[in-house]
Computed example of a mutant assay.
Amino acid sequence: MKTKQILSLVALSIVLFFQVSCSSNTDKKNESNKNELSGSISISGAFALYPMVVKWAEEFQKINPNVRIDVSAGGAGKGIADVLQNMVDIAMVSREIKVEEIQKGAWFIAVTKDAVVPVINASNPVFSEIQKKGITKTQLASLFTENKKITWGKIYSANNKSNINVYNRSDACGAGEMWAKFFNIKQEDLLGTGVFGDPGIADAVKNDINGIGYNNVIYAYDLKSRVLYPGLAIIPIDLNENGVLEPDENFYQNLDSITNAIRTNRYPSPPARELFLVTKGKTTNPIVLAFYNWILTDGQKYINEGGYVKLTDENIKSQIEKLK
C-alpha cells in the first residue's frame, strides 16, 4: 500500500514538474516574442550613403529576421523631401541639414563620413602633367563656374587644344552642394552638362577622354580591389597652389589612402563631410531606434571595409546620446 502511495506521489510530482517547466518555457517564449523586432522601415536619399546603408540593412536583418528594410537612392534632395512628406521613415542626406528643414521637423544623427573628389578620364591627353602638378582650387573653380571654353593645354602649358568637357550633377544632391561649397557658391551656380546620379557622372567621364566631373569616393574606387575603377582617375588637388603636387598632397593611390586623408583632415572639408540619417521629428519607432543604435555600435565595424570613414569616438557617443 505504502509503495503504491509513494509511486503515485512520484508520478504526480513528475507531472507537476513538466507542467511547471512547460509553462515556464512558454512564458519565456512569449516574452521573447514580445521583445523580438518585427515590421518594416523605408529609406531613401543620397547616393553617397546608399552602399553603406544597404550593407547595414543586410547585416541588421540577419540578426532581426522579422524586420524588412527597403533602401533606395535618388539624391539627398529627394530623400529629405520624402521623409518630410512622410513618404519614407528615414532619409539619407550627404550634406548639412538646412535650417528650414529643421523647422519642418528634420531630426538627424551623423553616422559616418566621406568626401567628394574630382574625377577625369584615365586616358586624359595630359595625364602625365596632371600627375606632376595636380590642379588648384582656383583652376577647378574656373572650370565649374565660368561660362567659357578652357583647354587642357591652357591649364598645363601644353600644346593640347582639346576643350575640357565639364560634367555636373543634374539632381539635388549632397555631392553637388558640397562641391559647390568648396568654391563658396551654391549647387545651382555650378556649370556643366547635367548628369543624374553618381553612377551617371562616373560613366560620362569614363566615356569622354576630355571629361571632368566629381564623385563621392565610393563611386570612384572599387570596393574589392580598393583601386580606382577602370577608365576613371582622380585629378589631385594642389592644396597649397604652388604648381607642384607634393607627397603630402598625393593620397589618391587607393581607397585606403584617400579615406585616411579624409580621417586625418589632410583632404579639405568641404568637400569632405559627415553623412546623416534623418527622420521627421525625433523618432520613437522601435525598429528605427534599434537600427540607429546598432549602426552606432556593432555596425561601425563595417565602415572601413565599406570605403567610408568612422566618426570620432566622442562624436559617436554624442550621437548615441541624442537617441535617449
Rank of each mutant, 00 (worst) to 15 (best):
D171T: 11
N147L: 07
F183S: 06
D203A: 02
V278H: 00
P270F: 02
G134L: 10
K28E: 14
F60N: 04
A122L: 01
V227S: 08
K280G: 03
I262E: 00
S157T: 14
K4A: 02
N184A: 04
E249H: 03
V54R: 07
F18M: 15
I212S: 03
K310G: 07
P118E: 10
P125V: 03
N210F: 01
R273I: 03
V15W: 01
V88S: 07
K62R: 13
L296T: 12
Y302W: 08
I212A: 10
K301S: 12
L223E: 08
T3W: 00
L228Y: 05
K161M: 10
P286F: 01
Y302V: 10
K206Y: 10
F251A: 12
N30G: 05
N30A: 02
E274I: 04
V111S: 07
D248S: 12
E101K: 02
T284W: 00
L16F: 11
N250T: 12
Q61I: 04
T112Y: 07
V15F: 08
L7T: 13
E96L: 06
T145H: 00
N159G: 09
I97H: 04
L12I: 13
K317N: 09
P51V: 14
A46N: 13
M52I: 15
A233K: 11
V20C: 04
I69L: 05
T259K: 07
E314T: 15
I234F: 03
V205A: 06
N147D: 14
I90S: 04
L49M: 11
I120R: 11
D171H: 08
K149Y: 00
L9V: 12
G79H: 03
V117N: 01
D203F: 00
T264Q: 07
T151N: 02
S123Q: 12
K2S: 14
E101D: 13
F127S: 08
Q19I: 13
P199V: 04
T136V: 08
A76L: 08
I90V: 14
W107D: 13
K206I: 14
A204E: 14
K186W: 09
L323V: 05
A172L: 08
I80P: 04
K29E: 15
N210G: 07
K322A: 14
D222I: 01
Q139V: 07
A73H: 07
K181V: 11
Q103T: 11
G77M: 11
I320Q: 09
V93R: 05
P270K: 02
N250M: 03
